[in-house]
Simulated assay, not measured.
Amino acid sequence: MTVMDTFDLTGKVALVTGGSRGIGRAIAQALGEAGAAVAVTARTEDAAEQAAVELRGAGIRSFGIALEVSDAADVERAVIAVSEQFGEIDVLVNNAGISIGGAALEVDDQVWRDVMATNLDGVWFCSRAVARRMSTRGGGTIVNIGSMSAEIVNQPRWQISYLTSKAAVHQLTKGLAAEWAPLGIRVNAIAPGYIHTDMSPVYEPQYKPWCVDPAPMKRAGEPHELGPAVVFLASAASSFMTGSIVTIDGGFTLH
């Protein structure tokens, strides 16, 4: 086996939550290009299926399914459906997440609950559901999408619930990695910095001095720049890694 062979995901089945747009969509594309069959989820069937259609158009075997990651029963349903459609899941990417701004003394309690339910509970429910099945057949890989916001406080937009949820995702990653290593399940995470998507106006004048200028590379990342790292963590190329948090932020957290 050559070094490049270790990145090959041919014959593997991957599930990417929140895979219909932005970062999740780019990750789904990367996993598919590495050879995996890719199931993508979104909160609506239409959004999930549209992404799957695009992936199939690129020659990637894909399946779209609606999923509310904060609902444990819905997670179980989706995992069963993907397994019946494609076979057992070898790679889980917990990407689904939300960010709702608001000053800590002003933000509504429901915002806190909604962000935690999606960003943290969703990772837990999906990881548990998939790991139960992985554990019966020798293991698999889980890649969580954390954030550099687990270590810094983003400004000028306050978002206390998001910061807290991503810090928890990083610690959850480490805890599950330690507990599930004997089962053959590796759990790692990436911690993106500011990524340029339709939902992230990092280059707008009011945000650029805070989000772009402080980074040594003087730019935001693009979604496709995260895909290769996820392929690495999902594949045998990272066979001796578990519990790691890989920061991809253009150097933002160096200062």
Rank of each mutant, 00 (worst) to 15 (best):
M4Y: 12
D8L: 01
D8T: 02
K12S: 14
S20F: 00
G22V: 03
R25P: 00
I27H: 11
A30F: 02
A30Q: 08
A30W: 13
L31R: 10
A34Q: 12
V38P: 08
V40A: 05
T44S: 15
A47E: 14
E49V: 15
E49T: 15
A51P: 06
R56K: 14
R56D: 10
G59E: 08
E68A: 12
A72E: 15
E76C: 01
E84A: 06
E88D: 15
D90M: 02
N94E: 03
I98Y: 11
E106L: 14
W112V: 02
V115G: 13
V115Y: 12
N119H: 10
L120Y: 14
V123K: 11
A131L: 09
R137T: 13
R137Q: 05
G140V: 07
T141L: 00
I142T: 11
I142F: 04
V143E: 03
N144V: 06
M148F: 05
S149K: 00
S149V: 05
A150I: 10
A150Y: 05
N154T: 15
R157M: 14
R157F: 14
W158C: 08
W158V: 11
Q159N: 09
A167N: 12
H170I: 13
L172H: 02
T173Q: 03
T173G: 06
T173L: 10
G175I: 00
G175V: 02
W180P: 00
A181I: 09
I185S: 07
R186P: 04
V187K: 01
N188K: 09
I190D: 14
I190W: 12
I195M: 07
D198I: 06
M199W: 04
S200F: 09
P201C: 10
P201D: 10
K218E: 12
R219T: 01
R219G: 00
H224A: 14
A229I: 08
V230P: 01
A234I: 10
A236L: 03
A236R: 15
A237Q: 08
S239R: 05
V246H: 11
V246P: 01
G251M: 07
